[in-house]
Design a binder for these strands. Structure first.
Lengths: 150, 150
DNA sequence: TAGCATCTACGACGTCACGTAGTCGACGCA
DNA sequence: TGCGTCGACTACGTGACGTCGTAGATGCTA
């Protein structure tokens, strides 16, 4: 069973994900060669290095892969936004109520006006969307990247 | 030069911080012995283990220490809230504008009603506080835990 | 058909962060 | 003077990552 997608990504892992997220990668998924050409060559990496990383990432559930002839086609398992959201929840998840409020205040306090605007906009958008959508009693957090039982 | 305070804390490191944050630790800072008694004993750890961890944390800037006779007194360098806030910014920091909005939306979407309420409250509190406080042209983010040049 | 290219599968090695702990020497108190 | 307490150092095991090399299978081509 795939391990918990660690929040902490390595540099190369992150670069690979960046590539997969970019429009540069084919929608159907990129092959090792393509990823290597894109992020491996400029770093002077061997083809196998990229392959190994991709393989490990697949095992960790960070990317998914599908056969395409002899080769695999890799796709990011989660969008950058999902991963970020996950990180945010993770960071906040360890705090109890009071502390959470306090942490949020800190966070907002250190945010740029742009960030605050974005946050307000997102909040407004969420509220607008939920109108007419009778909120289900309590929606547990999405679990697409949730860790398995123990 | 102290390294960047990694976001990723080890289990023991986190436990130690938790203790230092708790009222259980003396305000003046806890000695190795005190930390050991509090979090080391229950884990069956050796005194030196806790000492080593504390020492490393001090070198990483996660805790500060002051001499108290022959011993050191350790204090958390940042509050839990500051650390969390830092994590949040870190997570969000890698995204460009559009993606950030999207990530925030994801985040909010997966938040519990309680969390949303807390966020709104914090936002309101911030706005209330800034009234009358002519916002400085642009306040760069707080840098108490900022990495040094390089 | 013999080569050569292209892929994946596996195994390896180095480094770094952490958890864990032992040893040693300095120091203070009975 | 001897015991107990502390910090400084050193060390070892493990796991995550970056980085490759080699071995096979497969496919294209002269």
């Amino acid at each position: 069973m795939s391990r918990i997608p660690r929040n902490r990504l390595g540099d190369l892992e992150r670069a690979v994900l960046e590539h997969l997220w970019t429009g540069a990668a084919p929608p159907a998924g990129a092959t090792v060669r393509q990823v290597h050409d894109a992020v491996g060559l400029e770093r002077g990496l061997a083809y196998t290095t990229v392959m190994t990383v991709l393989d490990r990432m697949a095992k960790k559930g960070l990317v998914t892969r599908e056969r395409d002839g002899r080769a695999w086609r890799y796709t990011a398992a989660a969008s950058r936004e999902e991963l970020t959201s996950e990180s945010l929840h993770h960071a906040l998840g360890e705090l109890a109520g009071t502390e959470r409020r306090s942490a949020l205040l800190h966070f907002l306090d250190e945010s740029t006006p742009e960030e605050l605007d974005e946050l307000r906009a997102a909040l407004a958008q969420l509220e607008a969307r939920s109108i007419g959508t009778q909120p289900p009693a309590r929606r547990p957090r999405a679990g697409h990247l949730r860790r398995g039982p123990t």
